[in-house]
Design a protein around this nucleic acid. Structure first.
Length: 628
RNA sequence: GUCCCGGUAGCUCAGCUGGAUAGAGCAGCGGACUUCUAAUCCGCCGGUCGGGGGUUCGAAUCCCUCCCGGGACGCCA
């Protein structure tokens, strides 16, 4: 269910978007011709330039519905259509094939629309009643280093958030930090033991050490119980059995200790809590630094860890029991959701809560306290069932009902796994997750090498090169991640993304850098740039027209990204835009144009392209670089 | 076993509510830098859209079925 555009800016949008204007005209024509209201005009860009700029495919389905020859239907539409002068008048010649209606924009209208786009808001005015969108992203865990899995949640989640922000909605980012529960208790106990033994200092922890201790603690608590059962069953000898027995026993012991630590943590034992806080401080400091480096807007204020819901869980469960939403099942408490076979577990047989319980508390807070109209979860696709259960349970519990009685929309913006070039989940040779900062380092290193290779002696100051390399490397990684359909797995390849050729982040940055350079050149020739800002647009060359049409399409695309939660649409559009600009750049001299009017018109077109491109790149969250 | 997601050019991917000869990038081959940055542009090569049925004037797109790959499936998070 996508929000409809507020009526107050619809007319404004129409002044810019030819597709909307034409669509409305066709809808009206259908009504006039057949008395059918609000028919889908099926208008879109022409599939092939030789058919014009836009096409309507409405006649065919309409013909079927009315039992008429689609070409006759098309003729009737054409006859009743009033395109208000924005396109060439429709005639019998406009009808092609089974009933396609081909539409060519009027040249003057095109520049008029483009002038309307050329405002500070670039076709996306602030809505009269902004929505509040809560975006769940990042999702780090205490004592664990960020890896490729976090890359997507941050990058995609942040772009989704930015697209809503760009549309003028209120966005609340939520970093649902994994900072609670038994695994955290395990590592907390482990860290305390290490500190007590003098092997580490609590006020001087580093994340790599924490990560190691986390794994150690996990191992110590992990017992091969099934292995032991198998050894016994198949009688594999007393030695093997004894070894496993010992292992299981020590694991049981470690687990019991961790459970005790958890109890202390929950009851705010000062000593344990101090250890926990230093783990948290160390982890979050690194996490936020990585987010800053990634240019994802995730800050300390966005942190809403699992621990922050700890005191609410008992209340949530009691509430669900009281109101008959939850029921007992094999000693556990579950919420059954219609259409899903597996019930949603909210309390274990031993009384402990589960992550579904925390997520229910989070939904309640996000809707009731944060005022969310729309909750978006940018989380791994493998959590799909979990979110279907939790969303269903939240709706059933009434937690998604807002004060005004409306229901908040809950969506799982699921993303696929990052794969290596062998098609398997990306890991190091030793089978570990690849650290995110190492990944970023390599991209930046490769970018720096590329700059030096291309520029040679003219690469500039070392500091400037590093600044540019940082932006280019990060842009390359982010763009590669955003470029493909979110929900699918994607293959990560340094060689491909950092070749910096073709459809890559750096290509977009490069297009922008060339526009900068063009303006510098123009300024150095003494051309009056301020005059170009309001110069009449003369879109005569094919390249100029193509570029103009793409520019006009941008607001529609940004809306589409927010509606669908699919950033790759903006990537594709900005790439098309950059390609169109590159062709324009290649074939239409600007600074050296034949006459003054053309020069100023082209400067204005280039300037507008730069602003739209910059705006789009910022919406994607790519770092910019002014010179390449 | 049940459910979810995928299968489009050698590789990586687009393909919007069904529409006109299925599009990019990379790789390969061939062109374009005394003229605004060649991280660019132009051309060529390359596809039984996993297989088979069906609906339709029209299917990569919708329905059925099968094959292949990945994932998830009550007391971990």
């Amino acid at each position: 269910m996508s929000p409809t555009p507020p009526a107050d800016n619809h007319s404004e949008l129409q002044q810019i978007d030819p597709e909307a204007l034409i669509a409305d005209a066709i809808t009206v024509a259908i009504e006039r011709a057949f008395g059918i209201e609000n028919a889908d005009p099926i208008v879109g860009p022409a599939r092939n330039p030789k058919f014009g700029d836009f096409q309507s495919n409405a006649a065919m389905p309409l013909g079927k519905r009315l039992g008429k020859n689609p070409r006759e239907v098309a003729a009737a539409i054409v006859e009743h259509a009033d395109l208000g002068g924005i396109a060439e008048p429709l005639t019998a010649e406009s009808i092609a094939g089974p009933g396609f209606i081909n539409i060519t924009l009027n040249a003057d209208a095109l520049s008029g629309l483009l002038e309307n786009l050329d405002t500070p808001e670039l076709g996306l005015p602030t809505p009269a009643s902004p929505e509040t969108v809560v975006v769940d992203l990042c999702g780090v865990n205490l004592a664990k280093q960020m890896h490729v899995g976090h890359l997507r949640s941050n990058v995609i989640g942040d772009t989704i958030a930015r697209s809503f922000e760009r549309l003028g909605h209120t966005v609340v980012r939520q970093n649902h930090v994994g900072d609670w529960g038994l695994p955290i208790a395990m590592v907390t106990g482990k860290v305390k033991a290490e500190a007590d033994a003098g092997r580490i200092a609590l006020d001087d922890l580093d994340l790599a050490t924490l990560n190691r201790l986390y794994k150690d603690a996990q191992l110590e608590c992990a017992a091969d119980r099934r292995g032991l059962a198998a050894v016994r069953k198949f009688d594999l000898g007393p030695k093997a059995e004894a070894e496993l027995e010992e292992q299981v026993a020590s694991a049981e012991e470690a687990l019991a200790a961790a459970k005790q630590t958890l109890v202390k943590l929950q009851s705010h034992d000062p000593e344990i809590e101090a250890v926990w806080r230093s783990i948290e401080r160390t982890t979050m400091e690194v996490c936020l630094a990585v987010c800053a480096r990634l240019h994802t807007r995730v800050t300390d204020g966005d942190s809403a860890g699992e621990s922050s819901y700890a005191t609410e869980l008992a209340g949530v469960v009691a509430d669900l029991v009281d109101r008959g939403v939850a029921e007992e099942s094999d000693g556990a408490l579950v919420v059954r959701v219609e259409g899903i076979k597996e019930p949603c577990l909210i309390r274990k047989g031993d009384g402990g809560f589960l992550y579904a319980t925390t997520d229910l508390a989070a939904i309640r807070r996000r809707v009731q306290t944060l005022g969310g109209d729309r909750l978006v979860y940018c989380v791994d696709a493998r959590q799909g069932l979990h979110f279907r259960q939790v969303f269903g349970a939240a709706h059933k519990a009434g937690y998604t009902t807002r004060p005004d009685g409306s229901t908040a929309t809950l969506e799982h913006a699921a993303f696929g796994t990052v794969l290596g070039e062998d098609g398997k989940p990306l890991k190091t040779r030793s089978g570990e997750n690849i650290k995110l900062d190492a990944l970023l380092d390599e991209a930046v290193e490769r970018a720096e090498a590329a700059i030096r290779e291309r520029a040679g002696e003219n690469a500039g100051e070392a500091g400037d090169v590093r600044t540019a390399a940082e932006a280019i490397g990060i842009a390359a990684i982010k763009y590669a991640d955003l470029q493909t359909e979110r929900s699918k797995d994607y293959v990560f390849s340094f060689d491909r993304m950092v070749s910096f050729e073709g459809n890559t982040g750096p290509y977009l940055l490069y297009a922008r850098a060339r526009i900068n350079s063009m303006f510098e050149k123009a300024a150095s020739r003494g051309i009056d740039l301020s005059a170009s800002e309001s110069a009449p647009l003369r879109l005569e060359a094919e390249e100029e027209k193509t570029l103009a049409l793409l520019l006009l399409r941008t607001p529609r695309v940004v809306r589409g990204v927010a509606d669908s939660l699919e950033p790759h649409r903006l990537c594709a559009h900005l790439y098309d835009l950059a390609v169109a600009f590159s062709k324009f750049y290649d074939r239409c001299p600007v600074v050296g144009a034949d006459d003054e009017a053309t020069r100023l018109s082209r400067l204005r077109l280039a300037g507008l392209t730069r602003r739209v491109l910059t705006d789009g790149l910022e919406t994607l969250g790519l770092p910019l670089v002014d010179r390449m």
